[in-house]
Design a protein around this nucleic acid. Sequence first.
DNA 1: GGAAGGACTTCCACAGGGTGGAAGTGGTGG
DNA 2: CCACCACTTCCACCCTGTGGAAGTCCTTCC
Lengths: 261, 261
Amino acid sequence: MAVNSDVPRRSMAGRALALLGTFDGGHPRLKLTELARRADLPLPTVHRLAAELVSWGALERDATGYYSIGLRLWEAATLAPVAGRLREIALPFMQDLYETTRENIHLAVHDGFDALYVEKLSGHRSVPVVSRIGARLPMHSTGVGKALLARADAAFVRAYAERPLPRFTRYTITEHARLLRELRATAERGYALTNEEMTLGTCSVAVAIPSDGYTPAGALGIVVRSVRTDLHRLVPDLRAAAEAIGRKLDEAVDDTQPGRA
Amino acid sequence: MAVNSDVPRRSMAGRALALLGTFDGGHPRLKLTELARRADLPLPTVHRLAAELVSWGALERDATGYYSIGLRLWEAATLAPVAGRLREIALPFMQDLYETTRENIHLAVHDGFDALYVEKLSGHRSVPVVSRIGARLPMHSTGVGKALLARADAAFVRAYAERPLPRFTRYTITEHARLLRELRATAERGYALTNEEMTLGTCSVAVAIPSDGYTPAGALGIVVRSVRTDLHRLVPDLRAAAEAIGRKLDEAVDDTQPGRA
DNA sequence: GGAAGGACTTCCACAGGGTGGAAGTGGTGG
DNA sequence: CCACCACTTCCACCCTGTGGAAGTCCTTCC
């Protein structure tokens, strides 16, 4: 018997989703037992349910018994607005930025208290970074995060700053007052900067994508080696790209939706 | 009462998945009624189930009542091997190809009777193409498709060629014997070519990614305007990229999996 | 070689979550 | 003002999922 006396007894669909939810960046492949333990479900239940998910294509199971996310689920997920419309529109502009910089180009959206990375371009010559498509990173220590936060409404920013701000390097901003000051400066300047706040040796510029019709709001950023001192020179291109993306998004919204997004 | 006397009574999880399956490239957003009709489920059932999916984040519902695929499902799907490992490894090489050509760079895998597009890079100057990340296109009319098909085992190729081959342009190969001949030529040549077989005005080169440890098998392709006649010149770079990707995939497989993929 | 342990699979009688027709609500357009 | 349509809520019946227990099949260790 599970000890979920407080949990209001998950439904079948809820259990199926719980199984999907057990996968994360550190655990993209799981064995049956791990799946059951992480989802806190009895083993036979997981066994039966997982088999059904596999038969539909929501999960895959390889010869060694490991489960991973299935191809068909991935395929369905490409239809999410964030992956479809936003990415599709942004990509050519991100390519342009990549060509001129050959550095990591990030596209992230605001979700909960995190910046969720929707697209990332990088080449062999780019600095290695911790981001990954589908990854969540904090907003106070990343370029795109600060750009998003600087645009968020005051109540949200206050809520964000009142939580403990995890430290990643000795340059990470962890004092609430300093974060608020930084965000004010970002808003006035019109773009966000970071300097070794997430990873030593890298710094970044980012701007918010000015689209009023589209949610969740996005931001575009570039991460470079900190030895490069010409971060500011990237701003005009970055801003032009963000504005062009925003314009296209608004057009696309008008096309498909009579109401708001 | 639904008329599914032949369908073996779908389970709850099956119904939830059926809802996700109602979305496709032509219908990325659906209203409740459409969802119910397309999934062939009673409206109250869909209503209840959809609400549960929304609360988890597998679906989203906007102010106008339209459902679409949810952010959390998209996030989970980024953990699929095809999106995670394959894409991540291939991307820098695809970037290199993009820089030298500024044309559409495609990465596709073999799934069922289709080429499933896993990644696509394109800029403003690239020819417009019908592909989309997550899209499925036939294997006999696309570069990546032919590259995959030329490597598939004989039984599969026979099964493929025995089905009717849909025609897209007057250049599409629709005769079975000719397709088999073409595939033989592709295998000998070591790369696939198409010439206005999917879309008038575009042609393409593609090569299979030579990885023995990794399934599903992938292919890398470039689509350019047909006025460009130097398609063959792209082959060395393309092949080098595919080989490098294959090598990295095999390393990655060794790292994480004692057995086979 | 054999015993112990662990991971996975199968079984089945019980029970509580899901079902879906029907009725209610709200908005729209004629 | 009414008719219509899309969505939402309700509830008593009953079928589907439940999960402990037992079975199978490796792997490891002595």
